[in-house]
């Protein structure tokens, strides 16, 4: 695996890619906050929010459809919200029978469910745009500049650095297990579920020991190179006029969106 095997970053040289990562992080956070603040059933507001998504996607030269499709990752969770469509009191929209039960979807219930779903999809889409236009190391720099706790940001940076190394290690363990697990279709082979769980647990234990010992080696190597508990960066990451303008544009657009959704 390569170091950026997990990164969703799409290399390009668009306006959005060149924005300071701080601006992108703040805009994403504001956008998600704005979605949470939109009242239920503010369809025009949701539409405008999607317009902003489309604008960013076009400026970033990304295919909007791919962003939308990837945002469906949040859909399975919508199952948890389906019940509200039946539960909220109000005039019925339609009803159907399922076995002995009769279900009635109410108008406020459907409004609530759809609003939750749209809020979630829009928020995930902006988060996807953020990771597609910003390499993860830049994101980490942005967090540092935004004054998030230094050690936590450094831990996350380290985790990202070793993510693919340890995932490789895990895949090696899985491959080794697969290579030693012969299977015949018509015969039960191997042990019980308990036995299988134990084998997997041993693999997790093995992975832990290997990771722990690797962290020892990494730490010693860092000490040998003069590490004293701080990670430094040479990248200045300075905000340009364009960065400020983009931040201002988005803040104003979201403010207008909120006002519009409340009046309209």
């Amino acid at each position: 695996m390569h170091i950026d095997a997990f990164d969703q970053y799409q290399e390009s040289d668009s306006l959005v890619h060149r924005l300071d990562p701080r601006v992108k992080v703040v805009v994403t956070a504001l956008f998600i906050l704005s979605n949470a603040l939109l009242p239920d059933g503010a369809w025009a507001g949701f539409l405008i929010a999607f317009g902003l998504i489309a604008l960013v996607a076009i400026l970033a030269r990304l295919e909007l459809w791919r962003v939308v499709k990837r945002s469906f990752i949040a859909l399975p969770f919508a199952l948890a919200a389906v019940t509200i469509a039946f539960a909220a009191p109000g005039p019925p929209l339609f009803s159907f029978a399922l076995g002995p039960w009769e279900f009635t979807v109410t108008v406020p219930g459907a409004t609530r469910f759809l609003s939750i779903l749209l809020r979630s999809l829009l928020s995930v889409q902006m988060a996807i745009l953020l990771t597609m236009t910003t390499p993860f190391p830049d994101l980490i720099h942005a967090f540092r500049h935004l004054r998030l706790p230094h050690s936590l940001v450094a831990i996350i940076a380290f985790m990202y650095r070793y993510l693919f190394v340890l995932s490789d290690e895990a895949l090696r363990l899985l491959r080794a297990r697969a290579a030693r697990t012969a299977r015949l279709d018509d015969r039960a082979v191997g042990g019980s579920v308990l036995w299988r769980a134990r084998v997997t647990g041993n693999m997790a234990g093995q992975l832990f020991v290997r990771s722990f010992e690797r962290s020892d080696r990494v730490y010693n190597a860092m000490l040998a190179r003069g590490y004293q508990g701080h990670l430094y960066t040479l990248s200045p990451h300075e905000m340009s006029g364009f960065d400020w303008a983009a931040l201002g544009f988005f803040a104003l657009a979201l403010l207008a969106l909120q006002i519009f959704a409340r009046i309209g």
Binding site: M159, L163, V165, S167, R196, L207
Partner: peptide, 24 residues
């Protein structure tokens, strides 16, 4: 100062360990 490398690699370990699965 061991905090950062140890915690970072342990976090990557948990991430990777979540890949390990067994058929039920």
């Amino acid at each position: 100062e061991r905090l950062i490398p140890l915690m970072g690699i342990m976090a990557a370990f948990i991430f990777a360990a979540q890949m390990l699965n067994f058929p039920v």
